[in-house]
Design a protein around this nucleic acid. Sequence first.
RNA 1: GGGCGGGUAGCUCAGCUGGAUAGAGUGUUGGCCUCCGAAGCCAAAGGUCGCGGGUUCGAAUCCCGCCUCGCCUACCA
Length: 553
Amino acid sequence: MIRAQVKKAVDRCFAQGVTEGLWSAAGADRYTVELPKHQGQGDFATNVAMILAGVERKKPREIAAIFAERLATFNELIDRVEVAGPGFVNIFINPAQWQGLVPQILAAGAGFGRSEVGGGRKVMVEFVSANPTGPLSIGHGRQAILGDAIARLLAATGHQVYREYYYNNAGRQMRVLGESTRARYLELLGLVSTFPEDGYQGQYIVDIARSLIEEKGDSLRAHEAVAPFQEQAERAIFADISATLTRMGIHFDNYYNERSLYEQGHIEAVVAELRGKGLVYDQDGAVWFRTTALGHDQDRVIIKSSGEPTYRLPDIAYHREKFRRGFDWLVDIFGSDHIATVPDVLAGVEALGYDPARVTVVLHQFVTLTRDGKQVKMSTRKANFVTVDELLDEVGVDPVRFFFMMRKADSQLEFDLALATRQSQENPVYYVQYAHARLCALLRQAAERGIATDEPASLADLALLAAPEELKLLQSLSTFPATVEACALELAPHRLIFYLLELAGQLHSYYNRHKVLGDDPALSRARLALVQVLRLVFANGLAMVGLTVPERM
RNA sequence: GGGCGGGUAGCUCAGCUGGAUAGAGUGUUGGCCUCCGAAGCCAAAGGUCGCGGGUUCGAAUCCCGCCUCGCCUACCA
């Protein structure tokens, strides 16, 4: 907010110097206005003098002095300016500017932090997309939380967001699922059965088989086809998955079945179209996608000699459908094990005439789960995985969400179950939520003491908010909208988490040092106005990434 | 062999388009509730930012090489 004004002032001084012939326009857009790290370096600093010195071969401190002198004339905005270090121009903002933010933020209310930078662009966020072969695992959990947070951030910044879950309930994996279920079914009936070598060994299969016995008795004992077993398993597992997602507060606009791509002829159409462009050929009984013509190091099979497509073909067709459905931007959240598909899909999309730059793939690394210091290996096939449900049972929804959002997608995420459960009282999520609850308590207290908090902030003498901690808090609040915007456009929810943690730290520190409801009524009133805007930002920030906003804890 | 992502305090991790003296949590040590919520605060301690070069006023950040860990590299998804 204020930073933009400072940037404008610097730009004006820069342009003025250009017209006066002090320097050329070559340095335009290369300098920045940033927040200095250390105290005493002003509220903002610009490196414009150093950039210009490099371009013009002049002394940076001399140029800095010119800027310092001219910026100082913006005396409504700027209190004073200093030249420091190798040529930084440190800018000290007039406190009234910070104090003036309070009514602005209150006026924006729940809308503070939201923006329209998205310009109404239609964005599809595809995430989870787990085939119904078992309960959601920890890795899916990370993806679900990450995708949901990204979708929420995009929605908050003026994008039209559509959430989609892509799945496939056909194919080999599902057949194995059906066979596994049949084996358990026969087993439970005390009959001879052979469990598939690569079958799904989880207890949930036994439960599904048991439900089948309850519904149909042993009527399926001699059933040849695997279909009834597979269907029963799929139904039960999908119900389980969607229950887990609902539990985490995650909802999809659509579940897209891969099969529909075949039924509607999109698979064949893509092959034909690529073939028409000379990008598809037959060899060894298989159909190949000539990705070498698109700069890749080898061609890829898209239809096996068995006649079955490889995963690449439907993936390409699916992305083409997304474009045809009118989305401007496709965001895919994938686990890093799917990285191999990305170049092929992008190549396919491009070959079909769509701009691959409109596809952004967020690859998240795995979650390494530990329990009592020992690593737990996860595999859906084997029985020893830990499900999202189990995690939710142990830790709770908010901490799970928070932990999964705390790391950037690129990083592997270590989740120590024992630690998370044992120390749930010290979870960082509470640190932030406690800040909000504490602010609410202050407002309740104020009401009890008969101090009105619902009157316009303009009635408070905001100039009394002059303590360094108060000005710093206001400064932090002012960056909230830009932070949200950056998190959304970079698809990086973790940065908002760090922002909230930082702000909570500032608040707790302030709270311990300064009394809000003190003996001076005017001061209390001013501080309560600050409390209100802080509460608003915590509430908006927490809600924006799907965390609950507790008024008491 | 090739591609992608990690390697920053004992541990888990931030560090935005290069910026000034390297950050947080946790753990360790020592303080703070007759006072608005102690799920909190304050202080101390803890570092060759994997290694070596290069680019420049300036590098954890950009480039090259190497080491190391994870994922991928399939006519599995």
